[in-house]
Design a protein around this nucleic acid. Structure first.
Length: 264
DNA sequence: ATGGTAGCGTAGCTA
């Protein structure tokens, strides 16, 4: 099974790019973040027409929004709310055999890495704390689960173009890394992509729109992740990070698709 | 230190 994740930054504006990814990478499941539309406006039919007839969405007007598109039946799905908000950051689907897929969009956290000064950063930290407490209470480490999405944190030194220069930049601060690591350890999540790419090798999934030339400057960060629970880790067969999609015309997302291949 | 770009929806928020 191939499972992919992509922060698409508007599923309606970039529908053609999503279809291109499905055609080229042929994932069995694609999880999206930042769909940016209410459920009634989600473009379901083009996906149904291409064999992705099992769809779980949690969207709102203008912001956020997550989705799961699947060739495999979705037996049930659930939208979970965090921090007392209904801001459409988490949808989960149960597949045949009891495997559970989670599409997640962690709050970005604003610009100032201080929860006292910046409520968005406080929200990000609280979001991680709540999820860290939730996993062991709601699930078991021996459950077969896949957690993917835009976590908005680049935890490792070589998940960013300059560890030193980004230590004070939201997405790579020690407090965020500490909290993401705590969530990972809460139920033994395995960072699937880093099973294939050694920690001393640079790896990015996002490049800012604000760079003059994202490819030349290459100031990227690895914000998008695929985690699996221990029972699935032994079945990991391969991965992909589709860097070239950052240049897909006419209007690329600032994130690129990430996938893993799994023997179930 | 600053400003740079993008989407939604048509101002100003969010990233």
């Amino acid at each position: 099974m191939r499972i992919a994740t992509w922060n698409i930054n508007s599923v309606r504006l970039r529908l053609d790019l999503v279809l291109r990814l499905l055609e080229e990478a042929q994932p069995d499941i694609l999880c999206l973040q930042e769909t940016k539309c209410i459920d009634d406006l989600f473009p379901r039919q083009p996906f149904i027409d291409r064999g992705y007839g099992h769809i779980a969405v949690a969207g709102m007007k203008g912001y956020n929004g997550v989705a799961i598109l699947s060739r495999l039946p979705i037996e049930a799905h659930a939208v979970t709310h965090w921090c007392g908000k209904e801001d459409c950051r988490h949808v989960a689907a149960r597949l045949p055999g009891g495997i559970e897929v989670h599409s997640l969009y962690v709050p970005s956290g604003g610009d100032i890495p201080d929860p006292e000064q910046n409520p968005k950063f406080a929200h990000k930290l609280q979001f991680l704390d709540e999820m860290t407490a939730w996993w062991p209470q709601a699930r078991q480490p021996d459950d077969r689960m896949i957690l993917v999405g835009d976590f908005n944190i680049a935890p490792l030194e070589h998940d960013v173009w300059s560890h030193k220069q980004l230590l004070d930049v939201v997405s790579h601060t020690p407090i965020e890394v500490e909290k993401l690591t705590a969530m990972q350890e809460s139920i033994g999540w395995v960072d699937a992509v880093r099973r294939f790419v050694p920690e001393d090798r640079k790896l990015y999934t996002w490049w800012s729109y604000r760079a003059r030339d994202w490819d030349v400057s290459d100031r990227g960060r690895r914000l998008d992740h695929v985690w699996v629970t221990p029972p699935l880790a032994s079945g990991l067969k391969g991965y992909g990070v589709l860097r070239e999609a950052r240049g897909w015309e006419p209007k690329p997302s600032d994130h690129v698709p990430v996938w893993v291949d799994l023997d179930l």
